[in-house]
Design a protein around this nucleic acid. Structure first.
Length: 289
DNA sequence: AGGCAGGTTCTTA
DNA sequence: TAAGAACCTGCC
């Protein structure tokens, strides 16, 4: 199906923004991605400005992908609140126009960002992919999705061997060496413990949706192997709390060099997380990186 | 070839 | 409460 989409949305920027690890570029012109999320696959491109071309039906878009892509949030409106005197943020937002904050699954985010610690992006992606192959259920695309690939002159084998992100139970039944073979290293006990907590009911992520931002952060930080940075990422990307502002080494440098370590959080509430994404992307991908 | 990567825990004062 | 070491592994 095709869909008008006139608010900010740049697939490449989102894929490179570091919030998601299972977007795979499968074509260059037009840029096309394969997204695996929520036990489903989606093929998506933007053949011209303002038009999305999606492999799913209208109904599936409405019931799942629309929320995943955060379709209802007005990013242009959020950008317009940026202080024009703040030249760094202003430039970052001009550069990063097109970024949206996906609404991802909390459990997948939790494990993904636990894995992310002290890893670079390619290593994170590879590790998550191995985990999905080892423990996740296979996803069989609908024939209409394979047809979409063929109609777009894309190799239909991009629809083969797709695996959903594993559930807590699926991770827990893995042998120890099977989990080790996913290159998770010293994080294996963190992952296993998180899965145990979910399974025995000690942690109920669905329940966390009802918590305030502060309470959510502190509950997530109680998990073994989850510190403030990972908990902030899970809150922002997995619980779609757009005010969270994860601070990693990149953001630490940005804050120090451009804000004397004082960012106007009050001004940008409740969208500090969106500002963080612009600055993070600009710091990493922009000219002055 | 070997340092380093989107951190967190553990140990030590 | 704070600073420093240790931690798996693969990428550049």
């Amino acid at each position: 199906m095709k869909k008008n989409f006139t608010d900010d949305l740049d697939l490449t920027m989102i894929a490179d923004s570091g919030q998601c690890f299972r977007w795979e570029k499968i074509n260059d012109d037009p840029v096309t991605y394969r997204i695996i999320a929520g036990g489903r696959v989606l093929f998506i491109s933007m053949p011209q400005e303002g038009i999305l071309d999606l492999s799913c039906s209208e109904n599936v878009f409405r019931t799942f992908w629309s929320a995943y892509l955060d379709s209802e949030t007005d990013y242009a409106g959020i950008r317009n609140t940026i202080d024009p005197e703040d030249s760094y943020l202003h430039q970052a937002a001009v550069f990063g126009r097109g970024i949206r904050i996906l609404s991802q699954d909390p459990w997948e985010c939790l494990i993904s960002f636990i894995i992310s610690q002290r890893k670079n992006i390619p290593a994170i992606r590879s590790s998550i992919e191995k985990l999905c192959r080892a423990a996740g259920k296979e996803i069989i695309p609908d024939p209409s999705e394979i047809k979409w690939l063929k109609d777009h002159d894309i190799d239909p084998s991009f629809g083969n061997e797709l695996f959903a992100f594993p559930t807590a139970e699926e991770i827990l039944i893995l042998d120890e060496d099977r989990l080790d073979s996913c290159s998770v290293g010293y994080r294996a006990p963190y992952i296993r413990k998180a899965a145990e907590d979910i399974l025995n009911g000690k942690t109920d992520l669905e329940e966390y949706s009802a918590l305030s931002d502060d309470e959510l952060l502190s509950r997530l930080m109680q998990l073994y192997g989850v510190g403030k940075k990972v908990a902030s990422c899970v809150s922002l990307f997995g619980f779609h709390r757009l005010d969270f502002f994860p601070i990693d080494v990149w953001m630490e440098r940005v804050l120090k060099e451009h804000y004397k370590n004082v960012f106007p959080f009050d001004r940008y509430a409740p969208y500090n997380g969106v500002m963080q994404q612009y600055m993070f992307y600009y710091a990493r991908m922009g000219a002055n990186a």
